[in-house]
């Protein structure tokens, strides 16, 4: 922030201070749909069972603080149920903090595992609705429509309802929509895992492009290779706590060592 010309890349785009997230889960039947595969471990470790009703409190994120600058690509690693997705949703403004505060610049765009916005509608309608929800005008969406469809590579499927898409195709379209709006903060939660190798390569290029525009990228992945390729900094989450925050090589190595200790 000292010099005006470097302000773009060294000024913070996300500030997270003492973030705590506790949320309520209804009944055993609904939990699977709530945060995908993340819940069971969290529940076992962190919740107290209420004997009267099936409503439980999950303390998913505990006292997490960090500062991320414009143009940084931050990987988030940790075991299933360590609070990665919840943390991401809080930083995307989709989940209110129970304690602590989060600040962010501009409109964050989150790509989750379930990439489909509106299953019953065609890909084309999803492009329009997704674009508008990201703050584009109808005209801007129409201008970028061809680019979005080209990039997604789904071809004629764009005029079919998204319920007919494979999970990979849904993810491709969502990625194309989310990046077309040039978000200030792009968050990717395992969304690229379903894409094929060619699409993963293209999305890596697109992420690099977005970072050059001084946007911030968050990437949750269980593929350490993907984290190493795209990120220069990594947050390691364990049981809702931020265990380690540092350069990719160091943190990923420490994370891998902890596996070996656990399995040895």
């Amino acid at each position: 922030m000292e010099a005006a010309d470097v302000a773009d890349t060294t000024s913070p785009s996300v500030v997270c201070s003492g973030l705590d997230i506790v949320y309520t889960v209804f009944g055993a039947k609904q939990k699977g749909t709530d945060t995908g595969g993340e819940l069971p471990l969290v529940e076992r470790l962190l919740t107290k069972r209420n004997p009267v009703s099936s409503v439980r409190k999950v303390h998913a994120v505990k006292d997490v603080s960090f500062v991320v600058n414009h143009g940084e690509a931050v990987g988030i690693i940790g075991r299933n149920g360590s609070g990665k997705s919840t943390l991401l949703r809080a930083v995307a403004g989709l989940m209110p903090p129970t304690n602590g505060r989060v600040w962010a610049s501009g409109r964050p765009s989150l790509l989750g595992v379930n990439a489909v916005l509106l299953t019953g509608l065609t890909g084309a309608k999803n492009v329009m609705i997704g674009g508008l929800a990201l703050g584009l005008t109808p005209r801007q969406v129409r201008e970028r429509y061809d680019d979005i469809v080209d990039f997604s590579g789904i071809g004629d499927f764009v005029n079919l309802p998204m319920s007919a898409y494979s999970s990979g195709m849904g993810a491709r379209l969502r990625f194309a929509i989310s990046t077309a709006a040039a978000p200030d903060i792009l968050m990717i939660d395992e969304a690229l895992a379903t894409g094929d190798a060619e699409f993963q390569a293209r999305s890596r290029d697109r992420i690099a492009e977005i970072r050059r525009d001084a946007s911030t990228v968050f990437l949750v992945s269980h593929s350490n290779a993907a984290i190493r390729e795209s990120c220069d900094r990594v947050l390691w989450m364990e049981q809702g706590r931020l265990v380690m925050d540092g350069p990719t090589d160091e943190v990923v190595r420490a994370y891998e060592q902890s596996h070996r200790k656990a399995t040895a």
Binding site: F66, V67, E72, R241, V243, D245, G246, P247, V251
Partner: peptide, 10 residues
């Protein structure tokens, strides 16, 4: 802020 340093919270 913390690039280049490691911040071990726990």
């Amino acid at each position: 802020m913390t690039i280049g340093h490691s911040n071990v919270v726990e």
